[in-house]
Write a protein that binds this DNA or RNA. Structure first.
Lengths: 144, 144
DNA sequence: GCAACTTCAATGATATATCATACATTTATA
DNA sequence: TATAAATGTATGATATATCATTGAAGTTGC
C-alpha cells in the first residue's frame, strides 16, 4: 500500500536534498549550515521578529532558534543589540559578513533547486505543493 | 516561483507529520520515539543487518544508529549478543518487551497515516511518490 | 600466512532538537 | 496601581545527527 511508504519517500527526498544542498555549500567554501542560512535569511527579511516568530517560520523550536542565534552572533554573521523598547529582546541584524555569506550562498541554493527539480514542470510542482499542504493541514487538525 | 517554496512545503509537511505521529504515540502511553520505532522495526524484519545497513534503510548515519541501538538495548527493547561468526558484530534481536511496544505502536501508526493522507487518493499518492523519488534521484546524481 | 585493505562498531567533538523550566520584563486587569 | 497573566529569552537534560577517527576483526592477494 502506497500510504505505507509515502512518508518514507518524503523523508528520503528531503534528506537527500539537504545532503546535496549542504555538500554544495561546503564545496563552495562557505562555512554555514542550511539551517543557519535559513535563520539568517529570515532575519535579513524581517529584523523585528521574536525568536518565537523566527522559530515558527523555520519550523523549529524557540530553544533551537535561541541557540542558533547565539551561534550566528558568535560567528559574527549576526549582531544583537538590546532593544530599548523591550528589555527582554535584542535587535537582530545581519552583519556585513553575514550579508556576504548570504550573497555567496544564493547562487548555490538556486543551482541546487534546479538540479533537484529537474524533470518536474511548474504544473507538477503546483500539484506537489498542493498535496504537501494537504498533508500538513491534515496533520495539524485534531483527529476526526 | 514554486521551486522556491517547494522544499519549504516538503519540510513543513514531514515535520508536521512527525509531530502528529509522536504526539499520538505519546498519548497512547508508549515510550518510544518514531526514529527508535523505525530502527526497531527494521531489526525486527531483518535480524542480520549491520549498523551500516540499518543506517542506510532508515536514512541516517551509522554513528546515529550505533547510539540508538545502545539506547534501545539499555531500555530493554533490543538484545545484542556477540555473533560467533564475526567478532565485530552483535546479533540484534527485538526482545519480548520490544515486540510488545511494536505491537502497541502499530495501530497508532496506521491511524496517523489515515489522518495525514485524508483526501488523497491512491492515484494521488502514486503521483506524489513518483515526484519524491524523482527529486531523490536528482539529488543523488552529480550535477549536470 | 602475512601484509594491505576493507568492514564493523564505538566514540569524541560539535551542532541540533525538544521539553520543561526559570527568570525577567511587559501587559492586562481587578 | 498592585497583582496576575502573558511574553521573550536562556538553559539544563536528554536524544539526535554528522563527521572524523580509532581500533578491532575479517578478507584478499600475493
Amino acid at each position: 500500500m502506497l500510504s505505507s511508504i509515502i512518508f518514507y519517500s518524503l523523508d528520503k527526498a528531503i534528506r537527500q536534498y539537504r545532503k546535496l544542498a549542504q555538500a554544495n555549500i561546503d564545496r563552495a567554501g562557505i562555512a554555514i549550515t542550511i539551517d543557519q542560512w535559513l535563520v539568517l535569511r529570515v532575519i535579513q527579511e524581517h529584523d523585528d521578529l521574536t525568536q518565537t516568530d523566527i522559530a515558527e517560520r523555520v519550523f523549529k523550536d524557540q530553544a533551537s532558534v535561541a541557540r542558533m542565534i547565539n551561534l550566528l552572533v558568535g560567528r559574527g554573521l549576526l549582531a544583537a543589540v538590546p532593544l530599548p523598547s523591550d528589555g527582554r529582546r535584542n535587535q537582530l541584524r545581519v552583519t556585513d559578513e553575514g550579508e556576504r555569506v548570504l550573497d555567496a550562498v544564493q547562487p548555490v541554493v538556486l543551482s541546487n533547486r534546479t538540479q533537484a527539480l529537474q524533470g518536474l514542470s511548474e504544473d507538477d510542482l503546483g500539484v506537489l505543493r498542493g498535496m504537501l499542504e494537504r498533508i500538513y493541514s491534515n496533520c495539524s487538525a485534531p483527529p476526526a
